[in-house]
Write a protein that binds this DNA or RNA. Structure first.
Lengths: 160, 160
DNA sequence: AACAATATATAAGAGCTCTGATATTATGCG
DNA sequence: CGCATAATATCAGAGCTCTTATATATTGTT
């Protein structure tokens, strides 16, 4: 079977409703999915997922964060963060220590291996990040950044 | 506990690394997540998820699509689509019929209830879609659309 | 006709994300 | 002090998405 038994009339990616004429929400979902795919593959051999990378980055920037802190930062639910952190703790990249004052809070820190791992991940992700700005003028990049932030913070931005 | 036991120094959303100065990839992930949240909540009482809405929309546009067709359209794996379609079939919104010629292919169609459901979903999602363009000039919207498409189609765009 | 290659569908296992519910701890107020 | 409120953490269940693997069907080549 040389060719796929593809339905007639379906548009190629980047054309019609799949292109610049489509719904912005659809295009946003498509772009985010494609970007996630690329980061996923670039980190796959390290056993690190994009959410794990984001979590490692946050803990590195603010050591002592709690699960709840990360949930607020990442705009995720505490339950979701709990899963990610549990996997990172199991793999030995994160350590959890009880808070000195508040008995219930568990503070996060990167282990040594976690720090080394994050460093490796960073190099790869930064390379992909660069590609995102290719073909954009500084003026256009400002427009895109402003739009992304406005979408992220619209509608009350959940909590915080 | 009036206030959260929040870590000191964490930036507010929309500021610092969480704002226009942050990584584009981070901003993209944040924006897509926020948009998904809004659509999710707006469709929650109908028992429809964003991927289900996207699938219903595609089948409505091109009746007779197969699972594999949808996977190509949505840039997802056939396994992923299989889950979504199975849930839509179980809820009675989609019907699968064997292909007239190719015995293995199952073609999809919307049921009557599926058509009615899609109509309801559309109204709600279109309202959210409108908010996405607020504050954007036509020129800026063109820039954003072009960028989203370029991100979605970069790097070989998986297959197709 | 037989075989190889491709396409479709599906199952199993993992991670991410949500909602809902529960337990524990800390804070604020009467 | 004691109780209501709120914050943190966690469990259970659902859906989405991936990778890997398997079974079936179609097509092209020998």
């Amino acid at each position: 079977m040389r060719k796929s038994n593809q339905h007639p009339d379906i548009p190629a990616p980047g054309t019609g409703k799949r292109g610049e004429e489509g719904y912005l929400g659809y295009l946003l979902r498509q772009a985010a999915g494609a970007y996630r795919h690329r980061v996923e593959r670039s980190l796959a051999d390290l056993g690190v997922t994009p959410p794990q990378f984001a979590t490692l980055t946050m803990v590195a920037a603010y050591p002592g964060l709690s699960n709840a802190d990360i949930a607020r930062l990442a705009m995720l639910t505490p339950q979701t963060v709990s899963v990610i952190v549990a996997n990172l703790e199991r793999s030995g990249s994160l350590v959890r220590k009880p808070h000195a004052i508040h008995g219930r809070i568990l503070q996060l820190e990167l282990s040594e291996s976690g720090q080394a791992l994050l460093k490796t991940c960073r190099g790869r992700v930064h390379a992909i990040e660069k590609e995102l700005t290719e073909g954009l003028s500084p003026e256009e990049e400002r427009t895109v950044r402003r739009w992304l932030v406005s979408v992220a913070t619209a509608g009350g931005a959940d909590k915080d």
